[in-house]
Design a protein around this nucleic acid. Structure first.
Lengths: 153, 153
DNA sequence: TCACATTTAATTGTTCGCAATTGAATGTCG
DNA sequence: CGACATTCAATTGCGAACAATTAAATGTGA
């Protein structure tokens, strides 16, 4: 039973799975980012949150979650760690007391300058042209959005 | 100080990051897999281990780790959970007592048949042609391998 | 043979990621 | 206005993921 490679098994072969490609590529990115982000004192998900805040400050947790596809169970402890590192401040909104607004501290703002060298280091590690990467990124985003549409976002 | 959108900020914008595309696509895949794998009683990483074992049985932990890019810190507890679920058996190799060999139980073997419908459901969720997916997969794998080469695998 | 390095899993501790629940604030509808 | 549902963040519990360390088995070289 299932001793020799069978054509019927092809869909279950690891190397044929796009999702394993994506899964393992995500981990590979993480490993490349790690030493760069260690210099900033950030983990990769924390870096993503900082990217959001460097674009727009004073944002409710909900909005960060929508941009990063993460929920409060992930974000609440992560944001508390960023607060403990003096990079953000968490304050309950006065208009709507259900919301918690996340604002950068001066140190959080300042970290942006140190982070500017990161994307270029990553680009070098990919050994790809910018146009290739943009094309791949657009394809992957389109795929992601179709997947999220199925789950029902 | 960084009030209006600046061209210098483009590399730090979330939407320009291929790695966020990959990261968020991996999570999107996970969400699509979840209800399918719940029927098998597996998590996604556990499913990956089972894919490896369905291809070749009686494999040392090390080899599973190399195929999935995971280390013993991740695999040891995961394999213990698969053993607790009666899907695999862990036995120390007699030739080399450092190695632990992972073998499928009859239930582990049988689960392969239930899993055959999974890849097709995923394919449907992507709303892509097979050839498109194969092309993307190959690109992503090539990128992953270049990234892993930089870290030094 | 014996000291030493290497290999392999297991362990410990920290951080994600998510499902499920809780509790407070807000919205809605009769 | 008042019962009810909804929204939002926090919390709890579990399963990854990985760095760092440990311990045992094996390999290597003097």
């Amino acid at each position: 039973m299932a001793r020799k490679p069978s054509a019927a098994d092809a869909p279950l072969r690891l190397d044929n799975q796009i999702c394993f490609a994506v899964y393992s590529a995500a981990h590979a990115f993480n490993r490349v980012y790690k030493p760069l982000l260690d210099l900033l004192g950030l983990t990769y998900p924390q870096y993503l949150v900082m990217l959001v805040l460097w674009e727009r400050d004073d944002v409710p947790v909900k909005e960060i979650g929508e941009k990063l596809f993460l929920d409060s169970g992930t974000l609440t402890p992560l944001l508390k760690r960023l607060e403990a590192a003096h990079l953000v401040k968490r304050t309950r909104s006065s208009e709507d007391e259900r919301q918690v607004l996340i604002a950068l501290t001066p140190q959080g703002h300042a970290l942006k300058e140190k982070a500017r060298s990161v994307p270029q280091s990553i680009l070098a590690a990919t050994d790809c042209s910018v146009s290739e990467l943009v094309a791949m990124k657009d394809e992957i985003v389109a795929l992601r959005d179709r997947l999220n549409a199925v789950v029902g976002e």
